[in-house]
Design a protein around this nucleic acid. Structure first.
Lengths: 153, 153
DNA sequence: AGCCATTACTTGCTTGGTCAAGCAACAACA
DNA sequence: TGTTGTTGCTTGACCAAGCAAGTAATGGCT
């Protein structure tokens, strides 16, 4: 907080409705998606996301901090996530060649297989629980608005 | 998962952009708002929300499960939240008259004062970090879409 | 060469949530 | 009136996240 705002204008009805709906989505959607994906071999959303980003990276490898920021996770959070994935054999870690402080997280073949096994239900959940409800709206415009959210100015 | 979807159509570019942007918002926005509100006397978002719902309830009181679902929290999560608020004197608990298993969480005067103290910065944060970016869009339409999110059909 | 500031990551601790099990009060019924 | 099942909430065990402090490698700068 830089300045303490004296009496900000209260929310109008539409604004309030939007805020409440989005807050609800933030709480409910991740759990819903997770639950939809909970087949035999549940892959939690965070771990799924990490595998996904790795699969899209050149050589299926990324530095820890890149991966963390791609997943919107703190670096320490990512350390632990990768550790979990490593014990399952889905990811391995290698020291970075050009900077021995750094590590690469690397998607293993098993990890790729696991991701491919999960993505259809992940994708279906996204469509069914989320995108479905935005049919007919201008998605690109909406995406631009959401991309700006969080920035102050 | 009831049925395993064979090969769902992959996301188009606009769909993908929207999903990524919304996911990012879900991770980043709560922390941003929290941080904006972190004045001297930080009131975490969950606790703020609980106080807010209580303040709007008749007699400033609600049953635990009502409050939990209003806040999109599990009942046990709400038990702990209310416990935290109680130790700060912002809420008190009373056995429910007509059903001695039940409890009412009741907003105290101190709680109301605290809420009134927090809401300007809360509101400002919401405007600045969120609503600001939707100017010119049809908020009501958007709200309706988000209200449906999470439901399957 | 030797030191210092910086960077990349990990670890310890705390917080805040879930789920499952427990407990007490109620409701329905023999 | 006791018994049996259900409901409302709490508690215990666990887990994933963040922050702050620690460690190790690097890159200037003298």
């Amino acid at each position: 907080m830089s300045d303490s705002p004296a009496r900000p204008r209260p929310l109008g009805p539409d604004e309030e409705a939007l805020v409440r709906a989005v807050v609800k989505v933030m709480y409910v959607l991740p759990r819903t998606i997770d639950a939809d994906m909970a087949g035999d071999r549940q892959l939690p959303l965070t771990e799924y996301t990490a595998l996904m980003h790795l699969s899209e990276a050149p050589e299926r490898r990324m530095r820890m901090h890149e991966l963390a920021s791609a997943c919107h996770l703190s670096l320490s959070g990512m350390t632990r996530t990768v550790a979990r994935l490593e014990t399952q054999g889905l990811v391995k870690r290698e020291r970075c060649e050009e900077d021995a402080r750094g590590w690469n997280a690397i998607l293993t073949d098993a990890g790729l297989a696991r991701l491919q096994e999960s993505w259809p239900s992940h994708l279906a959940a996204i469509r069914r629980r989320f995108l479905r409800h935005f049919e007919g709206l201008d998605l690109a415009q909406l995406a631009r608005a959401f991309e700006r959210v969080g920035t102050a100015d």
